[in-house]
Computed example of a mutant assay.
Amino acid sequence: MTTFLKVDDELKRTLGFLPDDELLDEQSLKRIETALTAAEIYVQNAIGQGDKFYQKKDVAPLYKIACFAIAANLFNHPSSATSSTTAMAIIGQMRGAYAVFREEQENGSTSESRQTNTDD
């Protein structure tokens, strides 16, 4: 399983920390890193394996939002964390995109080549 995301200022702000926040100690940073890794594993297991898929230009922002939403839940509610509705909605969208991606990988085709002209 490959992880792509790093703890950045955006994730810190999502969790309520400012970049140079005194409350953001080493232990908190380690918890954030662990929550983010767990979130990435969760998302990838929910959708499927494929490093190239998660790095696609149109998928990467959705992947990041879903992972951040799950990481925030894991960080803020470690004993009772469940996936957020935001993350689950995005995962649903990404599953459809992943199915198309896998089909294109297996068949060597693109979605444009499968379209037919209906004006004929």
Rank of each mutant, 00 (worst) to 15 (best):
R13D: 09
A38C: 03
I70R: 00
N107S: 15
K64Y: 05
T86S: 11
T86Q: 12
R102G: 00
S28N: 13
L62D: 12
R31Q: 12
Q105F: 00
G48S: 06
Q49P: 03
L74M: 08
N73H: 00
L15D: 08
G16C: 10
L62K: 12
L15M: 11
F101N: 06
R102F: 01
G16P: 10
T34G: 07
I90A: 01
A35R: 06
T34Y: 08
E40F: 02
Q27C: 06
T85I: 10
L29E: 07
R102A: 08
T14Q: 06
R31N: 13
Q105K: 09
S79W: 03
Q27N: 12
A87E: 07
Q55N: 08
L18A: 12
M94K: 02
Y54L: 09
D21W: 01
D58T: 15
K56N: 01
V59M: 13
P61M: 04
A81G: 00
M94Q: 00
L24H: 15
K52T: 09
L24I: 15
D51L: 09
G16I: 11
V100C: 06
I90H: 01
G92C: 06
E40Y: 02
F68D: 03
P78E: 09
L18I: 07
Q44T: 14
L62W: 05
A72Y: 02
A38H: 01
L29G: 07
G50F: 10
G108T: 11
H77M: 09
D20M: 13
G108M: 08
M94D: 03
C67M: 11
G50E: 11
G16L: 09
P78Q: 09
F53E: 04
A38E: 04
Y98K: 09
T14M: 02
G50L: 12
E40A: 03
E103D: 11
K30H: 07
A69D: 07
E104A: 12
Q93W: 03
K52M: 05
A38V: 00
V100N: 07
D25E: 13
L62C: 02
E33N: 10
D21A: 02
L18W: 10
T85H: 03
F101Y: 15
D51I: 09
Y63L: 06
A35M: 11
M94Y: 02
G92N: 13
S83Y: 03
L74V: 03
T37H: 01
E104M: 11
I41Y: 10
I41V: 15
E40N: 02
D20L: 12
E103M: 11
A46E: 14
S28M: 15
E106Y: 05
N73L: 00
L15S: 09
Q55K: 14
A97I: 13
S109N: 05
N107E: 14
Q27D: 13
S84C: 03
V59T: 14
R95G: 12
Q27I: 15
E40T: 01
E40M: 00
